[in-house]
């Protein structure tokens, strides 16, 4: 289709794509390689890493390469459980975000053109204030003395149920995760839905489709690319998120993100932290691969 570009054109193309390529090599490929290497080394006695070569003066401790970090990971079922739980939280967050975002995105996409930009602005407005401050705000909202907590417990009490603590619970973590990531679901969905040809819905209705059938057979399948990109934008960051469980979760609500952070800042076991990161990357890649394959088979062979 596209003809072979002339030479000077191609040179210009390399010139334009060069800087971002260089950036990725320096700040993504190199760190990843360093991390892979790190995961196969011994931790240093006081944090950091043990030397690769034998030290000149014989002191105690190990040196060189070892698969110890990975052996450790597979030796304890606890880590697998944390992985599974993290995936569960990521999946739940993604689904809740999707269910909440879809109607809103549809509303924005179908409202009058002059209001759309304002509504999109309102969706991204929370980004204007600091992320941690917004999470701390949820600490107050969900705190035991908050009006919200009193309200929830009053309702529970009316049904004869014992009062609950909202803060420092899996519920609080999920609320925080959904709150933080909701715009990342709304925006790709809106971008997709906004482009839908309204005449397709007229045609469907004209040919006998009820409101539900028009959604299920026309709007929903056409919005799948938006659903998939929104889900990826929510699912993957949630997997690595440690701030929300740190602040809103209880001691039992540790996710992979917290585990990795602890290896570097707490227990100072860099190789194990690196190994966990690499396992997480592999897991995300396989999920993304599966999702791509699924997306392709779901949306047909469309270009």
């Amino acid at each position: 289709m596209i003809k072979e570009a002339p030479r000077e054109n191609r040179a210009a193309r390399y010139l334009v794509s060069g800087p971002p390529l260089l950036f990725l090599v320096v700040f993504f490929v190199a760190p990843t390689l360093i991390m892979i290497l790190t995961s196969f080394r011994f931790p240093g006695e006081f944090g950091g890493l043990a030397p690769i070569a034998a030290p000149a003066e014989k002191i105690s401790g190990e040196y060189g390469f070892t698969p110890e970090a990975y052996q450790f990971f597979f030796s304890d079922v606890l880590y697998a459980k944390i992985f599974l739980k993290s995936f569960g939280v990521a999946l739940a967050t993604t689904l809740i975000c999707l269910i909440m975002a879809y109607p809103l995105a549809l509303l924005i996409a179908r409202s009058e053109k002059r209001f759309r930009n304002l509504m999109v602005l309102l969706v991204v407005l929370p980004f204007a204030s600091n992320f941690l401050i917004r999470i701390y705000a949820w600490m107050i909202i969900l705190g035991p003395e908050s009006a919200f907590s009193h309200f929830v417990n009053a309702i529970l009490g009316a049904f004869g149920l014992a009062p609950v603590t909202l803060l420092f619970s899996p519920f609080a973590v999920l609320v925080g995760m959904v709150y933080v990531h909701l715009p990342f679901m709304i925006l790709p969905l809106y971008t997709n839905l906004e482009k839908h040809d309204a005449s397709l819905l007229d045609a469907a209705q004209d040919l006998g489709a009820t409101a539900w059938q028009r959604f299920w057979r026309v709007t929903w399948p056409l919005s799948l690319p938006g659903v998939f990109s929104g889900s990826a934008l929510v699912f993957i960051p949630v997997l690595g998120m440690f701030a929300v469980p740190d602040i809103l979760g209880g001691t039992g609500d540790i996710l992979i993100g917290n585990l990795i952070k602890d290896q570097f800042l707490g227990t100072r076991d860099w190789p194990f932290g690196s190994a966990l990161s690499i396992m997480l990357t592999l897991a995300v890649l396989s999920v993304a691969g599966l999702a791509t394959w699924f997306a392709r088979s779901a949306t047909g062979q469309r270009a």
Binding site: S199, L200, D202, A203, D206, P221
Partner: peptide
């Protein structure tokens, strides 16, 4: 009678074929 209940079908100017 709403459009979906009328025994009337339309061929639209832009065809409006379902792309998926």
């Amino acid at each position: 009678t709403p459009p979906e209940k009328r025994p009337v079908h339309t061929v639209f100017q832009t065809y409006a074929l379902f792309p998926h």
